[in-house]
Nucleic acid binder design. Structure first.
Length: 595
RNA sequence: GGGGUAGUAGCUCAGUCGGUUAGAGCGCCUGCCUGUCACGCAGGAGGCCGCGGGUUCGAGUCCCGUCUAUCCCGCCA
């Protein structure tokens, strides 16, 4: 089998050349006598000519072809008649006059069109069932080409920066502190289980203790949690860890990586360095710890203005240490009742009791609550929000973080409504990177009645906040950082604790994990920290999320070759599936009676 | 676990107020066609209206349940 060229290669310069091409039949145009085939391979399309007068054998065979069949041809490159040149095709000036045709695989009719515009609309479950057909669409071919290029750039960059690529175990032990894990029963150790690694976190820290200094990995990770458009049960992390580095060093390293990725993959120059925003400011201004800063619509704080308000709901929030936040959607006073109901439901799903609003129409404030406002309160709103006719104002009054979160969500929804009306434009090709920093090290978990690590328990506190660990844990800031792009969290990491005594204190005294549990789960790590542990830090990125942004994909399923559905199934292979009684017996499992 | 959306021909969809034989475009099959490139022309086949139950003289249409996909909340150290 010889292939002299691929299907995007031949041009007018090749006229007269004898060539051999292999690929898929993209389309057939049978004119009764003469017959054209568009031959497609990974690289492009070349038109084949089957002429019954010149080469009756191949032409007769070609009449039996069906789309998506795999064929091999030999022929001569000929110039197309001037008036039939296809300028939309790189190879449109020529065609191959076929002298031989081998049909390697005559395809059945595909269940859906292999076409970008038509195929995009086809139900995803059908496309996933026949993923190999979906993958033939140009859009997906481009995605996986770009994914390959991106991982190549990543490997080159870290190689130049002195990193080692090191693999860590996927079969790990259960560490119930984090995400729910996939359990793997051990055959050799009856009653014991591995857990599939939810991230290489602990191993990469041990690699630092092991003196590797600079580690990275494109690591497959597993989490048995409910899925979303940006979450799959198995996904790929770009994971790295560095000894002897501080936060600024890490920011510069990662900014260099992103700049290289965007340049080499998309040809886009990113402005460096990325802005940094404290968690508190991100919440106050955007109502999110992963703010989309491509548009304004920032939140304003009116807590002080309503501390003595006649409007009980606002006063109560302000008096009890919460916040009163407001958001203007310019020109959205024409919101429909349905849209407003939807926003209210959204606010309620986040714990709001309702969604207070004011429509400004014809110089009047139309709102169920405005009658409770004093003139001073109205003046404060009017002045600080710069209200104009046609504007719509939303309010949230609640505990600070909840009030921010609610309005943050309303901000995104309002932006979507404004975009739909053509009143807000977010240019495609705009990439707003930013670092979110100064996260609280702990947050108090009402359900468990104790503090839990906001990021993970290995995050080092900001040095000047260490004295507060005992007195006021919730105001201790962690040396944690998230990289956010256009409202998506690309990744996060931290400078780690590298001293056994501080790590033990965090586990036992702050997080209140019983010492014996600390010993079984993390004993080996604490032990390692006692034998010369370098200061270190790292970060991990969702490679799938990065690829989704680089390829403008709505879901990471588009950038994963064989993704799973929201119920965690692979529709093509029908996994997960049942196993035999013997298999269960081998791993010492007995099924529970169900139903 | 909860909320939203969708499910009608192979695909994408339409289907009025509950009414007679459920339609369209693409695809598929047959025939014709020697310069097309979304080739064209003529003809044809193709339906458990996701599934189950209910209301009704009558259900694709209304009600209840259920399944699947998807979006979101919870969850994701």
């Amino acid at each position: 089998m010889k292939r002299t060229h691929h299907c995007a290669q031949l041009t007018a310069a090749d006229v007269g050349r004898k060539v051999s091409l292999l690929g898929w039949v993209d389309s057939i145009r049978d004119h009764g006598g003469i017959l054209f085939v568009d031959l497609r391979d990974r690289e492009g399309i070349t038109q084949l000519l089957f002429d019954p007068t010149g080469n009756p054998g191949p032409a007769e065979k070609a009449a039996a072809l069906k789309p998506e069949s795999v064929i091999e041809i030999e022929g001569e490159v000929v110039a197309r008649p001037a008036e039939t040149v296809n300028r939309n095709l790189g190879t449109g000036a020529i065609e191959v006059d076929c002298t031989a045709l081998v049909i390697h695989n005559l395809a059945e009719t595909p269940p859906f069109p292999i076409d970008d515009t038509l195929g995009e609309k086809v139900n995803e479950d059908l496309r996933l069932t026949y993923r190999y057909l979906d993958l033939r669409r140009p859009r997906l071919r481009r995605i996986f080409k770009l994914r390959h290029r991106a991982t190549k750039v990543i490997r080159d960059y870290f190689d130049e920066e002195g990193f080692y690529e090191i693999e860590t175990p996927i079969l790990f032990k259960s560490t119930p502190e984090g995400a729910r894990e996939y359990l793997v029963p051990s055959r050799l150790q009856p009653g014991h289980f591995y857990a599939l690694a939810q991230s290489p976190q602990q191993f990469k820290q041990i690699l630092m203790v092991g003196g590797m200094e600079r580690y990275y990995q494109l690591a497959r990770c597993f989490r048995d949690e409910d899925l979303r458009a940006d979450r799959q049960p198995e996904f790929t992390q770009l994971d790295l860890e560095i000894s002897f580095i501080d936060r600024d060093g890490l920011y510069a390293l990662i900014e260099g990586l992103m700049a290289r990725l965007w340049k080499d993959v998309l040809g886009v120059e990113l402005a460096l360095p990325f802005p940094r925003l404290a968690f508190k400011d991100a919440m106050n201004r955007f109502g999110s710890d992963k703010p989309d800063t491509r548009f304004g619509l920032e939140l304003e704080d009116f807590t002080a203005d309503f501390r003595e308000s006649g409007f009980k709901v606002f006063r109560a929030a302000a008096e009890s240490g919460g916040a009163v936040k407001a958001l203007v959607a310019p020109g959205l006073a024409d919101i429909t009742q349905g849209e407003l109901n939807h926003l209210t439901e959204t606010a309620k799903s986040l714990g709001a009791k309702g969604l207070a609003f004011i429509k400004i129409e014809g110089g009047e404030w139309k709102s169920p609550i405005v009658k409770f406002f004093s003139e001073a309160e109205k003046a404060a709103l009017s002045e600080r929000l710069g209200l104009k006719d046609g504007d719509l104002v939303f309010f949230a009054a609640d505990a600070w973080e909840r009030a921010c979160t609610i309005l943050g969500r309303i901000r995104l929804e309002s932006a979507a409504l404004l975009r739909k009306r053509g009143r807000l434009e977010i240019p495609s090709g705009r990439y707003d990177f930013l670092w979110v920093v100064d996260f609280p090290l702990m947050t108090y978990d009402e359900e468990q009645g104790r503090y839990v690590a906001s990021h993970h328990p290995f995050t080092a506190p900001v040095p000047e906040d260490v004295p507060l660990l005992d007195s006021d844990p919730k105001s201790v800031r962690g040396q944690h950082y998230d990289l956010v792009l256009n409202g998506t969290e690309l990744g996060g990491g931290s400078i780690r604790i590298h001293q056994a005594d501080i790590q033990k204190k965090i586990f036992e005294e702050v997080l209140k994990i019983p010492p014996e549990v600390v010993e079984t789960r993390f004993g080996y790590l604490l032990r390692a920290f006692r034998y010369g542990c370098p200061p270190h830090g790292g970060i991990a990125f969702g490679l799938d999320r990065i690829m989704a942004l680089l390829t403008d994909s709505a879901s990471i399923r588009d950038v994963i070759a064989f993704p799973k559905t929201q119920k965690g199934q692979c529709l093509m292979t029908q996994s997960p599936g049942p196993v035999t009684a013997k298999q269960l017996k081998d791993v010492h499992l007995t099924p529970l009676a169900t139903g």
